[in-house]
Design a protein around this nucleic acid. Sequence first.
RNA 1: GGGCGAUUAGCUCAGUUGGUUUAGAGCACCUGCCUUACAAGCAGGGGGUCGUUGGUUCGAAUCCAUCAUCGCCCACCA
Length: 913
Amino acid sequence: MAQPSTTQSTRYNPADVEHKWYQHWLDQRYFESKPDHREAFSIVIPPPNVTGVLHMGHMLNNTIQDILIRQARLEGKNACWVPGTDHASIATEAKVVKMLRERGIKKSDIGREEFLKYAWEWKEKYGGIILKQLQKLGASCDWSRTRFTMEESLTKAVFRIFVDLYKKGKIYRGKRMTNWDPEALTVLSNEEVIYKEENSRLFHVRYQIEGTDEWIIIATTRPETIMGDTAVAVNPKDERYAHLQGKRAIVPLVNRSVPIIFDNYVDMEFGTGALKVTPAHDMNDYEIGERHSLEIIDIFNDNGTMSEAAQLYIGEDRFKVRKLVAKDLEAAGQIVKIEDYRNTVGRSERTDAIIEPRLSLQWYLDMKEFAKTALDAVDKKEVQFFPEHFWNMYYNWLNEDNIRDWCISRQLWWGQRIPAWYYGEHTFVAETAAEALELARRQTGNAELQLEDLRQDEDVLDTWFSSWLWPITVFDGFESPEELRYYYPTNVLVTGWDIIFFWVARMVMAGYEWSGDLLGEAVAQKKGIMPFKDVFFTGMVRDEQRRKMSKSLGNSPDAMALMDKYGADGVRFGMLSSAAAGNDIVFDAPFDPKSKKVLSESKRCEQGLNFCNKMWNALRLLNGLPQQEEALNEESAAINALATTWFSNKLRQTNRKLKDQFKSYRLSEAIMNLYTFIWGDFCSWYLEMIKPPYEQAIDRPTYERSLEFFETQMSLLHPFMPFVTEEIWHLLRDRKSGEDCIISQLPAEEEFDAALITKVDTAIEIVSKVRDARNKNGIKQKEPLELFIRKTPQTSELFELEGLQEMICKMAYLSKLTFAEEDVPNSISFLAGPGKYFLVLNKTIDVAAEISRLEGYLKKAEGFMKGVNAKLNNQRFVDGAPAAVVEKERKKQADGMARIKALTEELEKLKGG
RNA sequence: GGGCGAUUAGCUCAGUUGGUUUAGAGCACCUGCCUUACAAGCAGGGGGUCGUUGGUUCGAAUCCAUCAUCGCCCACCA
């Protein structure tokens, strides 16, 4: 068993502590979970990219998951947090390509097989780093369950559902516009295209209406595509062109006759309101072409030069042709004018080449029904979002006007290769090559066919096509659903809102599609169910200029360095204390203009470390106290009795609040709740109340209660700051094996005495006011003073509370506390709670200062009364508001009047005397 | 262009269905303390007419509308 350190040092040192306890937890197998009789609580990790390194977003995300899983574990649930990584096909392939390039190897030279060998090597080498880093953060994942989206069994599941969807007719192959990089000669995904505003020119070109002397003027930024024009389009509402119905126009230079069509897409306000349509080279034109069955003429070669189909300028580069066409049109008198113009141009992230929209054959998944399922799930609250407003974003993407079929093929090698084989005109979709071959033999009637005769699709599947199954596949749901029945649906998904479409929505779809069959009898009518009950959206972590923290911007502090400096607990505190659900968090790491780097420093994390230190020293105080059976005297017996009763009630109150905060995922509130409670109520008040004078002993019962309080607080705080709490837990008492904070018991929810808490609050207010009076009058903190209480029914009742007087005397260093029938002359007076108090200073009072102080109070009280009176004098308020509210206002009025009266009297006396 | 969100103390943010709040917390700031648990600390303090203008209501930081500023997502105009 791990040994706790000694408490000699006044400084808490996380480095000594954190690794030790993490290893201990691993040795005790606390993170591991197997189905049993207990209630399950499961979370699947959003798998980070396999070759990624820990950044601030991961830190936040995984800290939150760890808090929830540790809390569940403490609540006695069977907590299971499944870790893993994503193969991230684009990102990883790009890294491998770069690595190979640095070694002078070109991807195209080595071929698919060898490339994949390098890629796997790379994965083996760097794949574990991020998981190791998560361990440093304290993540209590069941590491024996670590999965990878491209491991064998997950890949098998991917092929299985691909075939399933293909059979259901939801997967199809279709031609669509894609982003073509004419330099790299490859299709790019939307994520790899960067759009930027650039300067260009808008050409106004005139086209003749066939068989007339009339012209129609169109505006274009890309005159070189004129040879691919197959229509001219105008808006059907545009009266200027209404008469052109059924007419045709002549495309200049190539003199082709094309139809004039009417389409709502055309913006009447833009340019001349007329548009040339080039279906092969523009996304929108393609869609117009589809609607009007236009001819498609592809005028470019792969490398961006003109093809035979262009008829003119064959073999010349597209940008050279733009100039040539402009010149030739000008010469032919076809150009009306040329304007300067700014438009957005898409460039390849890797080669910076201007993207050419191009038709290509891709695999698609029909999303219509899926989208409806996913919408219903949230609509019927089967899945709940925190915060709720993300529903709007989700709805906006999934509703039928916006939803688009999912392009699931990628022109990459690192990934799951599409399980489709071709033979001539035939396509065979099967889970394995052997099955495909069998299909092929059966369907072609050719029993002699061999695998070599078939050609497998070259593309791989989109990464998300494996991750949308993650909540099912990590439990081997498709192979043996026993575990799925226990752990599914998972309790909560914790993720950034930036992947709400890519991932969250799609997991919901997959859950409903397949879990029903897999869960079998466990689910009514075998209807699929949601993959998680709650979704907790974390914000993006941003720098002080509100930019997203990212590696490419270099604005992110080094996560590992932060933890070295402040400890994992400190960093967890720092991240969380500013992370309200769904709100982006601005992380306070300073930027050093000299080194042009973000420093791994943070005030918030420092606060977390200071908090550890505070608790560490509270521990040192308790551990260092000598003990004896009886209390020192009657006074301390009374104080200790009051202090323990009061604190146990505060503890229950805090526990109640904390439970609510967990239920609604208000975790940043929860940690601040614990912070102020432990630091303020426990250390500053409770411990000071019970602390015996120097080298005196504390009575054993109070000591014992104090240990219990401390322990309970460590359990409550454990999910947030696991290391320091475990360490203190062990230093508080001698523990047997297995008595660890990580599996300790949380206090049950109990009623608390609110009236008692209010009374002690008033006492605390009195103490503070006395201290303030000392401060303002330059009197030493420990100089004994006498305090008088103006006797009223309220103050009498307050001071009936056993130990209250003694406690106030101790905390405020008062020599004596006396009830007075009259106001006490030559004293400092103040109000606290319902009473009035007089502090006798052993020196002359500065009357002028006293007057101005009291006038300040009076002004505030009068302002307050104005509001209250205005309400009560309003007959409609008295009639309209609920009786309880009116009653409260009446009480406020009475209290306020009393306060003003007391202050006025006091002021008169001071002024008069 | 479509959608979402934000605007509260010098900074970062709470304020959960309108009424125990002329508004809370942390940091920063100011004053006094090296007091035998803690200077990574202790005690105390100052600071905001809740972005604008209207409206609903007995009552608005909170609900509605408008404008302003900022941020994000999606689609992209030839």
